[in-house]
Write a protein that binds this DNA or RNA. Structure first.
Lengths: 207, 207
DNA sequence: TATAATCTTGACCAAATGGTCAGCTTTTAC
DNA sequence: GTAAAAGCTGACCATTTGGTCAAGATTATA
């Protein structure tokens, strides 16, 4: 492991920098974010950033790595032993929860993909693709057993991802339409209920 | 009208610049796009951009204005005289079609909102909000008549927008998962069918 | 054809930005 | 306690970028 030899100070400061960087990248994207902004947000002089990270791109990569590890741990509920209703309900709920607890992470991820995924393209084509392949088989299995209507599992994932992440990525638009300043817990709960019912019903899983 | 006094040359060159700019802004976002890139993509020297547009932001605003006029003309099918099945099918289809025919427009729009809609915030809070308010009433009406299950119309719009635009905005991710280079007409057709069935079924409208 | 209006373009500029570095301070290890 | 390692920072630099401008070329108008 690489984490072994890192001092307490280094660990703490790297975490602080990555937290600040995620926030700034979320607001401005990779090119729009400036090292000066990140430094200010982390409450350290700009030069100090370069003591802990070689370059702006190195910070960006580290932020993305954190986000990807978050993303991976989300599909646990989808395995054959579960029934589809519980599994999909939990999955949608977990995805929505991510939009609540880590909106900046979602925005950085969205921005990266929107610009062609120059940094995480390989991850998408390898790890993510295999993960979806495996989970799709589980859903196909449920369908074969008659527990769900026949929907293409991959397209179902695309829809779930889009519909849940939109509450983080495009919250500006949603707030504007709803006429509110920010999405509160109650609205996010309502959105979760709405989406769960809509999609489960769409998959032919009775409520 | 402002278009009256514009010469043929001016009209043609402005259109050419806006076409190039939309492409570059879609790839790189506002900050990431450079005037040099736009100029190269439009096959004119950089100085010439400034003869037709005051600044980079002026080009960006003009590109957004074009996109918004595209967006507005999309909700025609949703009015009381139609039955919900036809209306929603047409709406979803039209939205998906936009992702096929104008992916760059969708990406520029997505990027603008992802970064907090600094330029079109007012449009979202006024025009778009009122439009959705009106269309939501139509859907509420259908629900009151028992033609649909009771779904919150606004959240339904959020889901439709997200699920359709994801095929333009996040096509990199979708291509990676599907293991293809680009989405072809057949895949987009399948996605449209999938989404229509899923959402109509979710709204309690029999297929 | 004359001339005024529009269009084109290379050279140039000021500001912003990512990154470097030498020297200083603090922490760690023995 | 002391020396070495790790951490910190202001001053500085090269490059990029949006934008300006003056002078020349083309087009419209009479």
């Amino acid at each position: 492991m690489e984490g072994d030899s890192k001092s307490r100070i280094r660990l703490s400061n790297e975490a602080n920098i990555l937290r600040a960087a995620e926030h700034v990248f979320a607001r401005a994207g990779f090119v729009g974010a400036t090292m000066a902004e990140i430094a200010e947000c982390a409450h350290i002089p700009k030069s100090n950033l370069h003591y802990y990270f070689k370059s702006k791109k190195a910070i960006y990569r580290a932020v993305l790595a954190n986000i990807l590890s978050l993303w991976l741990a989300q599909t646990d509920s989808i395995h054959e032993d579960n029934d589809p209703r519980t599994a999909l309900t939990d999955y949608i709920r977990a995805k929505m929860q991510l939009s609540v607890t880590h909106p900046d992470a979602s925005r950085v991820f969205a921005n990266e993909i929107l610009h062609g995924a120059p940094e995480i393209g390989d991850y998408l084509r390898e790890d993510l693709r295999q993960l979806v392949e495996r989970k799709a088989e589980v859903i196909e299995h449920w369908i074969a057993q008659g527990k769900m209507m026949p929907v293409d599992p991959k397209y179902l994932f695309f829809t779930i991802w889009a519909a849940t992440q939109t509450y983080a990525d495009f919250d500006t638009q949603i707030c504007a339409v709803l006429g509110v300043q920010a999405l509160d817990a109650q609205q996010m709960h309502k959105a979760t209920e709405h989406l769960t019912e809509l999609l489960l019903c769409g998959c032919g899983i009775a409520h």
